[in-house]
Design a protein around this nucleic acid. Structure first.
Lengths: 154, 154
DNA sequence: TATTGTTATACTCTATAACTATA
DNA sequence: TATAGTTATAGAGTATAACAATA
């Protein structure tokens, strides 16, 4: 297509930059909303995942929430210190730690959910429900996995 | 199935979390792609804005790229050290610094643009051009400004 | 040797408050 | 006093490599 030369599109037409910026804003809002629960965004997200999956090994949990091993350790250390999760050795493979929600962790979850709902309501205030659904669909289809196709060049 | 009660939607149905995560990924990819230019994402973004707006005060630049004053100072210090931008006192109001691209900064810009294009091509590999346009539109309409409506509570 | 989880480290981004110099 | 810019500092997120225990 004709378009202008590929060179130098306006900065905020750059979807990469838009995503980075909105991600930062979402993160900041979530953190603020979660302050009442004493959790960070990633801690809240981790609790939500545990509630969905039930007891799970750290490897699987890592993939589910998209952080690396050392980051997950830090998250779980904090959560375990506050008795929101518990790590148990897997008797079948003593290298593995099975992570599970405690009763206290389950209770905190309600507050997390409320906070996230409030943040979303605000972020998406100008969008219709149909648009929100579209946005959700498009976001999940963004290529998140490691570099595979396209631009594989060098 | 009958869905569960509204409480506790699946974590990755949370748009706030999706945005935060994809933002982080975009940022990481951009950083990696910009490594060749020796710039961080925000430095690259700053150069792009300067190219669009021309000479501009730091207050205006802050708003344009969405970082706060102290963050901008750090960005500009690095860029100025590398002679990519220049700060000049505004003779009309000696408190103000007018920021502008140097010739070297303009040259680097081409590499920044190429890197960003490559990253986007990869992130958006599974979307049609129409979907990309929709995504762009929806992202720009997310409520980025300070808390006004909804959840204003305390 | 490979895998699971841990520790240590460092860099980026973000947020806040205190400071300066001008107005 | 108010504003433009600066400095300092701290917390959160991310990335990497080295390590221990177990398989």
């Amino acid at each position: 297509m004709t378009v202008e030369e590929t060179r130098c599109r306006r900065a905020m037409d750059r979807i990469g930059l838009l995503l980075a910026r909105h991600g930062g804003i979402s993160n900041a809002r979530l953190r603020q909303a979660l302050e009442a629960t004493g959790l960070t965004t990633r801690q809240g997200m981790t609790l939500m995942h545990l509630a969905e999956t039930g007891p799970i090994g750290q490897q699987a949990l890592m993939e589910a929430i998209g952080v690396d091993a050392s980051a997950l350790v830090a998250i779980l250390n904090d959560l375990e210190r506050d008795n929101l999760v518990e790590r148990r050795r897997d008797p079948a493979d003593r290298r593995r730690h099975i992570v599970l929600l405690t009763e206290a962790g389950t209770e905190v979850l309600t507050g997390v959910d409320t906070a996230m709902t409030a943040v979303e309501r605000e972020l998406l205030a100008h969008l219709t429900p149909a648009e929100v659904a579209t946005l959700h669909d498009l976001l999940t289809r963004i290529n998140t996995s490691a570099h595979d196709e396209a631009c594989a060049g060098s």
